[in-house]
Design a binder for these strands. Structure first.
Lengths: 150, 150
DNA sequence: TATTGTTATACTCTATAACTATA
DNA sequence: TATAGTTATAGAGTATAACAATA
């Protein structure tokens, strides 16, 4: 540790800085979505179903990094709230689509997420924000390809 | 959502990209520290105690964003492993210092963390890495000052 | 009155195993 | 034999409430 700042050894640790910021951002997002009775995972699920109507529950889980076992109660919850339709594809798979109520709530959630991002990242210019998104994504893809647990 | 990429609505969400990368990085860190029987929170605690010997358990918790109630078992665990000394300061506060064994394990953990960061962020130049750390920290400080839950 | 350390507890998120029914 | 959906369950991590001792 001699080659580092002794006062704050965590200052140079990118992983620590990433996690600390992520925790703060996710807490703010949770607050932004709470009035809609949506958790962040549920909101992202609505966004993806809206973008790719008819996709499978397993596809959705793989895209979001959520395991099948944990998808079941999430999907069931949204279904019971009348936010999505489940149509059997072949007896074991079911395709997901938003109902009208689901689409309406999805739009509300999207607006709130956009507000949340605009507010939190107001100090970043549009160019910086876009560059960050690209870099974060590229890094994630590189590591995902390298790591088995991706 | 009409003003966005319909294929991947999450691509432009900085919060989503941040969290996704953070999860991957933390999982890799956990693997790197597992052979030392240390979790990431325990390792960062060792780093901070080494950097600021004599600090209080509450100070440590505040710095790391860990509540008093959750600090107790963490500190007790490190203490029982003979990694740190607890000396009463005034009857309710206790100052923390690493034992020789604690300092040795701290050095091992630091090496592993450095290896982990070098491996994961190999695609970033030293300048980029340092710039990221600064930007992430600045953003965290801005939001922490803005958010009450910081 | 406020703070430190502690215990107990609950809630969320995530991980694994096992089961069914289908392919 | 592998996959989709489900259930049950266990483990982290984190949150609040309450308490004793001390400042």
């Amino acid at each position: 540790m001699a080659d580092d700042n002794m006062r704050d050894p965590l200052a140079t640790l990118l992983g620590y800085q990433l996690r600390r910021l992520s925790v703060l951002v996710m807490a703010d997002l949770a607050e932004a979505l709470a009035p809609l009775d949506l958790r962040s995972a549920e909101a992202t699920m609505l966004f993806l179903i809206a973008a790719q109507p008819g996709l499978t529950q397993s596809d959705l889980g793989r895209t979001l990094g959520i395991q099948r076992a944990n998808m079941a109660p999430l999907i069931a919850g949204l279904d019971q709230r009348g936010l999505l339709d489940r149509a059997k594809l072949d007896g074991r798979s079911q395709s997901l689509r938003l109902t009208d109520a689901g689409a309406a709530l999805c739009r509300q959630a999207w607006e709130r997420v956009q507000d949340h991002e605009a507010r939190l990242f107001a100090d970043l210019s549009p160019g910086e924000r876009s560059r960050w998104a690209t870099q974060l994504r590229d890094l994630w893809e590189t590591l995902g390809a390298r790591e088995p647990a991706g």
